[in-house]
């Protein structure tokens, strides 16, 4: 494609799933109104959900899921060697995601519970950046297709790729939602990165922080406000731990 003297190369892309539900990859086939245009941007080299062909000459690798087995580590390292841009795709890849709940239990206990009597190789869940270098993160459970499109368009046109730096509240207010704290619930909107258009809170469900911490969050003030409203600190802990996205912000007071 050529415009104003610029030539846009199609993005040689591959997508790989690790420990996850494949919901983020599924999002790529979503948003039908622009699906054809979106696929036009891509030269798909390897993408189980979109095409059966498989090639290894990709530049961009979308990594979906977290890492929970040794063979996954090796597969991921091989992808890293090939990819010029490795993208942590979705909350499992970015933070460990829901799978990280596993890390609260002993592996033995887990295997006995889930696969009784079977020999299963497993290890504590890791996020992608624990294993290889990540060039770009697109958080979300699942990812927001609109954002993925924007990122891909920016990569194709060589524009700066950024994520919103404001928290979810900011987008929540633009939808004229009643704050869930006013309705007596704990919502992670004030500490979570926006960009999802506050989809959960607009549906009157508290934000669980799937997009991870917003830029420079104020965790002490956030814990303070939960306390001031006499809401349950256990509920707060549970929500914060849900996607394992606030690891670096463990709050001692809560």
């Amino acid at each position: 494609m050529k415009h104003r003297g610029f030539t846009f190369e199609k993005l040689k892309i591959a997508s790989f799933d690790f420990t996850c539900c494949e919901g983020c990859q599924l999002q790529l086939a979503n948003r039908e109104s622009t699906l054809i245009d979106f696929l036009e941007l891509l030269d798909i080299k390897n993408f189980r959900e979109l095409s059966s062909e498989q090639f290894d000459d990709y530049d961009i690798a979308l990594i979906e899921g977290s890492i929970s087995r040794q063979d996954e580590v090796e597969r991921l390292q091989a992808i890293r060697r090939q990819a010029k841009t490795l993208v942590a795709f979705g909350s499992c890849a970015c933070f460990g995601g829901v799978n990280s709940l596993k890390n609260k239990f002993s592996l033995k206990e887990l295997v006995a519970e889930v696969y009784p009597g079977m020999k299963v190789e497993t290890m504590p869940v890791k996020k992608i950046s624990d294993v290889v270098k990540v060039d770009l993160s697109i958080p979300g459970c699942p990812v927001n297709k609109e954002e993925v499109e924007r990122v891909m368009v920016n990569l194709a046109t060589g524009s700066l790729v950024t994520l919103p730096k404001h928290p979810v509240c900011f987008e929540c207010k633009a939808q004229l939602n009643t704050c869930l704290f006013e309705l007596g619930e704990i919502c992670l909107g004030p500490i979570t990165r926006g960009g999802c258009n506050a989809v959960c809170t607009t549906g009157k469900t508290p934000c669980l922080g799937c997009r991870g911490p917003s830029e420079e969050i104020n965790m002490p003030a956030f814990v303070e406000l939960v306390k001031a409203r006499e809401l349950s600190l256990d509920d707060l802990q549970e929500k914060i731990a849900f996607y394992n996205a606030f690891e670096g912000f463990s709050n001692h007071e809560a």
Binding site: P167, C169, F170, P190, I191, N218, P220
Partner: peptide
């Protein structure tokens, strides 16, 4: 400022 969540609300 120490109380502010930078939320823009």
């Amino acid at each position: 400022g120490n109380k502010c969540l930078n939320c823009g609300t």
